Amino acid sequence: MPVELTPSQALGLWHTVSLEQVRIDSRDLTLRQMAILLQIYLVPPPHTVRGLAAALDVTKPVITRALDTMGALGLVDRSRDERDRRNVIIKRTLEGALYLEKFGDLIINQGRKL
């Protein structure tokens, strides 16, 4: 059953979830980094820098900078494609999966309070 929210309720939910995420987790992802992370975890692989750039309509250097940060945080991993060394394959990590699972739980819990 779809949940119906007014724009104000939707923004309030986003606000509450964002505030709580900042309070409970020191990793400070930008909106772009979160969009990339969700693309990697919610869309079936394989994922490449080129493919992510196309999906988000940004340049490859933008994706690379975001992946540098997310890689340092343990949320994603990168490796060269053995079949085509020009491609960089982006892989999910356990840490990234746990991060998004907790984030999803936070959204659910805050949504129930509406």
Results as ranks from 00 to 15, higher is better:
residue 56 L to S: 07
residue 100 L to W: 08
residue 81 D to Q: 06
residue 74 G to Y: 02
residue 85 R to V: 11
residue 92 R to L: 09
residue 46 P to E: 13
residue 2 P to C: 09
residue 67 L to Q: 02
residue 32 R to E: 12
residue 83 R to M: 08
residue 70 M to T: 06
residue 73 L to Y: 15
residue 62 V to T: 15
residue 44 P to N: 14
residue 76 V to A: 07
residue 17 V to F: 04
residue 13 L to K: 02
residue 99 Y to P: 03
residue 74 G to P: 00
residue 62 V to K: 10
residue 94 L to D: 11
residue 1 M to C: 05
residue 9 Q to M: 12
residue 15 H to D: 13
residue 15 H to R: 14
residue 67 L to D: 04
residue 79 S to W: 03
residue 34 M to E: 13
residue 12 G to Y: 04
residue 70 M to S: 07
residue 28 D to C: 10
residue 65 R to P: 04
residue 76 V to Y: 04
residue 14 W to E: 14
residue 40 I to V: 15
residue 26 S to H: 13
residue 2 P to V: 15
residue 58 V to A: 11
residue 23 R to H: 08
residue 48 T to D: 04
residue 92 R to M: 11
residue 36 I to C: 03
residue 72 A to N: 12
residue 18 S to K: 12
residue 87 N to Q: 11
residue 1 M to S: 14
residue 22 V to L: 14
residue 60 K to V: 05
residue 85 R to P: 06
residue 6 T to Y: 04
residue 81 D to P: 02
residue 86 R to Q: 11
residue 96 G to L: 07
residue 12 G to L: 06
residue 81 D to W: 02
residue 71 G to M: 04
residue 53 A to K: 02
residue 73 L to W: 15
residue 15 H to S: 13
residue 88 V to A: 03
residue 75 L to G: 03
residue 112 R to T: 01
residue 101 E to P: 00
residue 63 I to N: 06
residue 110 Q to R: 13
residue 29 L to K: 08
residue 106 L to Y: 10
residue 73 L to T: 01
residue 12 G to P: 03
residue 55 A to E: 10
residue 84 D to E: 09
residue 102 K to Q: 13
residue 52 L to T: 07
residue 106 L to G: 09
residue 108 I to D: 09
residue 17 V to S: 04
residue 48 T to Y: 02
residue 60 K to D: 12
residue 43 V to T: 15
residue 75 L to F: 06
residue 80 R to C: 00
residue 3 V to F: 05
residue 89 I to W: 08
residue 37 L to I: 07
residue 30 T to W: 05
residue 1 M to H: 12
residue 40 I to N: 09
residue 26 S to F: 10
residue 100 L to V: 10
residue 78 R to E: 13
residue 101 E to W: 10
residue 114 L to Y: 02
residue 95 E to M: 07
residue 69 T to L: 07
